[in-house]
Amino acid sequence: MPNIRLRPICAGLALVALWLATVSVRAAAPVDFSGIWVPVAAARDPLAPATLRMTDRAKTALAAFDPRRFDSTRFCMPYGTPRNTLSTAPYPIEILQRPERLTLIFDRLGDVRRIFLDGRARPNPLWPTWFGHSLGHWEGKTLVIETVALTKESILNDGGLPHSEDMRVVEHLSQSTRDGTQWLSDEITITDPTMYEEPIKVTQRFRRAEGAQMSEGSVLCLVDQWREDLERRNQTLVEGPQSGAGKGAQP
């Protein structure tokens, strides 16, 4: 009875086909966000303090905000998440997408966000950091990202809106094409009951910048300070050996 022998082979082949299907589905994400994106300024500031329902703790922190002291970027420290993604200043963001990871590199200060898509669990313990710990999964063509463990040393915007280390940031990232241009939409929901009585919802939009290249943005802040520091000490910039050698002059 050849048919009886065929049955397991048949089932085996079907399983192989199913496995291949799973593998190729997992390998091919529904959308590829890879590329360089530039934020588009919003018509109104969604983080205007007057529109937010702040707790007393948040009000106190905001009233005491002194950018010279509490804005990390003045010290060439990162913007941090979600401030890096919330900023509408026209500095590009580069996205590198792999099946198991989405990496965001910000031109300003070189902030790097890593979003794990491989189904891993959060490490325990999880210490607060500037970019937090981000896990993502696909819901259709939307990438849903949840970020926790964000240091309270970071703020939400240039105005110094505070957050606590219990803040949870959920993002819905999706792509669309309109008028021949590709747009990236990041619907951000910030939940932080210690500071805000209701979740803050912001939709940030980005335009694809075809052919653009990133600068060495992380450097600029530091170069300025280095130069200032050298000038303060009344010194010239460091001269490499070749700056003299190449021109036949002693440095």
Binding site: L6, C10, L13, A14, V16, A17, L20, A21, V23, S24
Partner: peptide, 24 residues
């Protein structure tokens, strides 16, 4: 009937294999 199933399974295998190859 079973032969057809095998053929379908084989075709599916080949198709997904091809899809994986062309996606590179």
């Amino acid at each position: 009937m079973r032969r057809r199933l095998i053929t379908t399974a084989l075709a599916a295998t080949l198709m997904f294999g091809l899809a994986t190859l062309t996606a590179a």
